[in-house]
């Protein structure tokens, strides 16, 4: 009899403790939950909601139109151009960024004198803001004052309209972006290289494997999870580019650099169409979701593989 009372009391105590723990935990968590709720979850749902409505320029919904924004988007020549530019931009920037950063990480992983200096130099573009970086390149690409055209002229090649020719503008923006991306990718890849155990190389050396052999049979395979991670992050970042477009080209010429975020910005803040801008934002969300999903799926496999 008394034992069961004790049991009940213990259970009550346990429950009380569980409730107390929950309340304390929520107290610690509430600032993060409130901020993320208000500025990430709520706006994401609201964006989806907006995308089914016609809105005024203050973002008030006027009329429900279902999927019409989406249907219109896929027929719109401007949006198709924007999507094409977005994918081309990823294609131009991502592989080049990864290859260059990998090259830099490999040469900066050599144990020679003065290497810390080079590591700082190769990381430096992470500390350069998109506005400052793009402004420098705006001058470098300048049709008459720019260094690039001066160099071309010096070797007898005529000027290139880096930012005003529809054939060149996206490439010029990509070059700027690659330069800006190198710092971050370099840091992560160098970290990945340094995580590879020395023993692997030593036993390879004993087996008489040369430099290239080691590079392709040890370094690259061991680095593949890191390479995969930076590829996905760089793709996602490329979908979110905005600042360099705003400063270098303003989306032109002929929308050839009108990447998706710039297109969303223009639709909402220049044209005042929050509804169709929201539909574009949902397309962006879906794109990022797909690539994050791939990362999780393949990342999972990589872990098992090791």
């Amino acid at each position: 009899m008394s034992k069961s009372i004790e049991n009940i009391e213990r259970k009550n105590n346990k429950r009380q403790k569980a409730i107390k723990n929950l309340l304390t935990a929520l107290l610690y968590l509430s600032p993060a939950l409130i901020i993320m709720g208000a500025f990430l979850f709520y706006p994401m749902i609201k964006t989806l909601y907006y995308s089914f409505f016609v809105t005024n320029s203050r973002g008030e919904t006027i009329r429900y139109i279902g999927l019409e924004h989406y249907l219109y988007l896929f027929e719109s020549q401007v949006f198709r151009t924007s999507m094409k530019a977005t994918f081309l931009f990823a294609l131009y920037t991502v592989p080049t960024t990864i290859i260059l950063s990998l090259f830099l990480a490999i040469i900066a992983n050599e144990k020679v004198k003065g290497i810390p200096f080079f590591r700082v130099v190769f990381s430096s573009t992470l500390g350069i803001s998109v506005a400052a970086g793009a402004t420098i390149w705006l001058l470098l690409f300048h049709p008459s004052l720019g260094v690039f055209n001066s160099l071309l002229n010096a070797i007898g090649i005529s000027d290139i309209q880096w930012l005003t020719s529809p054939n060149w503008a996206l490439i010029s923006v990509s070059i700027t972006t690659i330069w800006m991306n190198i710092g971050f990718n370099f840091i992560i890849l160098l970290g990945g290289l340094q995580n590879i155990s020395e023993e692997l190389y030593e036993s390879a050396k004993i087996d008489g494997a040369g430099y290239w052999n080691q590079l392709f049979n040890i370094t690259i395979p061991m680095l593949s999870p890191t390479l995969f991670f930076v590829s996905v992050v760089t793709i996602i970042n490329s979908f979110q580019s905005f600042g360099q477009i705003d400063i270098l080209t303003g989306g032109g010429p002929n929308n050839s650099t009108n990447l998706i975020v710039y297109s969303i910005y223009r639709e909402a803040f220049e044209n005042g169409f929050f509804g169709s801008a929201s539909a574009q934002a949902i397309v962006l969300f879906a794109l990022v979701l797909v690539f994050t999903f791939i990362q999780f799926k393949v990342g999972e496999k990589k872990v098992h593989y090791q």
């Binding site: 706006p43 994401m44 964006t47 929201s278 934002a281 962006l284 969300f285």
Partner: peptide, 9 residues
């Protein structure tokens, strides 16, 4: 959730 997809609201 990319910030760029949620900035309108």
């Amino acid at each position: 959730i990319p910030w760029e997809a949620a900035f309108l609201p």
